[in-house]
C-alpha cells in the first residue's frame, strides 16, 4: 500500500469518526471541533489523491483547494464561536 493511499484511508476514517462526533456530542463547542476534524479528514483525502498521480510531482489543484479550504474553515469556525458567544449571552439574560 502506498503512503498516499494510507493517508487517504486515514482521512476517510477521520471523516467517519467526526461524523459520529457531530451527531453524538451535545455541547456546541464539541460539535464545532468535530466539524473541524471532518474538514481535516476531507483535506487528507484530497491531498492523498493528489499524490497518487504518476510521476514525482503532486497535482497542484487539490493543494490550492485545500489551502482555500483551510482559510475558509478557520473563518467559519470563528463565526460559529461568535454565534456560540451570543447564544450563551442570550441564555444568561433569560436567567
Amino acid at each position: 500500500m502506498s503512503s498516499a493511499l494510507w493517508f487517504s484511508l486515514v482521512g476517510a476514517a477521520l471523516v467517519a469518526i467526526a461524523l459520529y462526533g457531530v451527531f453524538a456530542e451535545h455541547h456546541p463547542l464539541r460539535r464545532l471541533i468535530a466539524l473541524n476534524m471532518m474538514a481535516s479528514g476531507v483535506f487528507l483525502v484530497l491531498i492523498g489523491l493528489a499524490r497518487q498521480l504518476p510521476g514525482r510531482v503532486p497535482d497542484p489543484v487539490p493543494h490550492a483547494m485545500v489551502l482555500t479550504g483551510i482559510v475558509v474553515a478557520v473563518s467559519a469556525t470563528a463565526f460559529a464561536l461568535a454565534l456560540l458567544r451570543r447564544l450563551s449571552r442570550v441564555q444568561q439574560e433569560e436567567g
Binding site: 455541547h27 463547542l29 478557520v74 470563528a78 464561536l81 458567544r85 450563551s88 449571552r89
Partner: peptide
C-alpha cells in the same frame, strides 16, 4: 485555532446545553 478555541472556552463552559 488554539487561540480561537481557548479564547471561547470561558463563555462556552457557561453555556447551557
Amino acid at each position: 485555532t488554539g487561540v480561537l478555541l481557548l479564547g471561547a472556552l470561558e463563555r462556552a463552559e457557561r453555556a447551557r446545553v
